[in-house]
Design a protein around this nucleic acid. Structure first.
Lengths: 230, 230
DNA sequence: TTAAAATAATGTTTTAAAGCACAAAGTTAA
DNA sequence: TTAACTTTGTGCTTTAAAACATTATTTTAA
């Protein structure tokens, strides 16, 4: 069941540190690995949740389809993070879609295995409580940011969040994620044309430099300031 | 510690059904009751969370202060619901403010008591997991609704949500909550003037009738349709 | 290696909603 | 019972962002 290329799931992400040796084995036995190409859909709104997914490598966007084909990205996932479990825990169907933004490998754990372990291991239950509480706080923040800030503030904040989440490449300035202008727009709640325009003005103001989809941050302080003022 | 006017907290809200007899006693012994007048602030952004609050009677708004004095109401609380615990579970300070919208009584339970019980009672942990998961789903929905729908859709949706949450008075049409136009605007992400205007047009279109702050729903289907189309 | 498609870039027009200003009606307080 | 204040209601003006249109530039595929 385990792939020899990869370490076992319980050693990969520290969210499983709280498991007993027995539980770790149980988790390993029930974990499978799946691979996805770039821009592949992992799950869709309305489907029944079946697995917790823990990213090994690659990047994933979680988004909701809005009116008129405009999507809203509600969160971005990076390696070691898990997703696709919320709907199950709420006893709902998926309310979001998940798609890769680059080639991706991930552990798949049946949600009933997760459920059993949450029921028998308090510490794991608390791990989920904490993750969900933090996510809920972020979601409230995002709502206010996206509804009250102007275009420049929204894009600046989106870029700041990408920096904080994915960090920089070895050069120390290039953000370690490549997104289309459309995805950038869907994170910042604006049209693609406006994302392009606003990104260009950030470049001409000397805050960023852009090479295709690679964004480098030249003046982080200024970016932060714009993201706060709105 | 208990007030004779009110039933014990564990009998009042069914979220405590999962507690053992011993835990119930422990909960009761540590619960106090507080009373608030209309428009009183219960807690503020930045404060250290100390108590879980369970509403006995009255209504509470949870809101974030936005730019330029415009607040965003992120949720409304009704009797039997609990709040003020998210920040504690996420090990953060409050990110929101809470204020009464009418005279309110509430149970106050120290969060360390809640923490102890979550750690010792898996079922209670799961209760919180489920509540948080559902809230997170709602928050994602709200984000998309508030960012993508137009004014009429946003207000219609806000009113639909109020109906679903608070229900009707005995007459079967008047929504069982009275909010200022400003609060209505702060739920639907618009200016007060636009809330007033849009509400008036809903009235002149025969969907609603309004007497001061009392809103009656005359054509729920139409309201629902507008809330969905945007 | 050309064609087709997707993505990026820019200019122009339109519009939804904010901003502003002011009046009327209710409330609260002195 | 005035006065002061808050809330509600409207009209007018401005503006931020969407919508639309068109042209480059990449990327992908045939």
């Amino acid at each position: 069941m385990q792939n020899k290329e990869f370490v076992p799931i319980d050693e990969f992400s520290d969210m499983w540190d709280v498991l007993t040796q027995e539980e770790r084995m149980y988790l390993r036995e029930n974990t499978k690995i799946h691979h996805f190409k770039k821009n592949q859909i992992i799950y869709c709104e309305g489907e029944e949740p079946s697995h917790l997914i823990c990213l090994i490598k690659g990047k994933v966007k979680i988004y909701k389809e809005g009116t008129g084909g405009r999507n809203q990205i509600v969160m971005m996932i990076k390696p070691k993070e898990s997703f696709a479990y919320r709907a199950f825990l709420a006893e709902e169907r998926y309310m979001t879609n998940a798609a890769t933004v680059e080639a991706t490998s991930a552990y798949f754990v049946p949600l009933k295995v997760i459920y059993e372990m949450i029921c028998s291991n308090n510490k794991l239950a608390f791990t989920f409580i904490k993750i969900l509480s933090k996510e809920l706080g972020k979601a409230h923040n995002r709502t206010v940011n996206l509804t009250q800030k102007h275009i420049r503030g929204r894009l600046a904040e989106a870029i700041v969040n990408l920096v904080e989440h994915y960090g920089f490449d070895d050069d120390g300035v290039t953000i370690n994620i490549c997104l289309s202008r459309e995805d950038l727009a869907n994170i910042s709640n604006m049209t693609t044309a406006n994302a392009i325009r606003t990104l260009s003005s950030f470049v001409s103001e000397g805050m960023l430099s852009v090479k295709g989809r690679h964004i480098s941050v030249l003046d982080y302080e200024k970016l932060l300031k714009i993201s706060k003022i709105g």
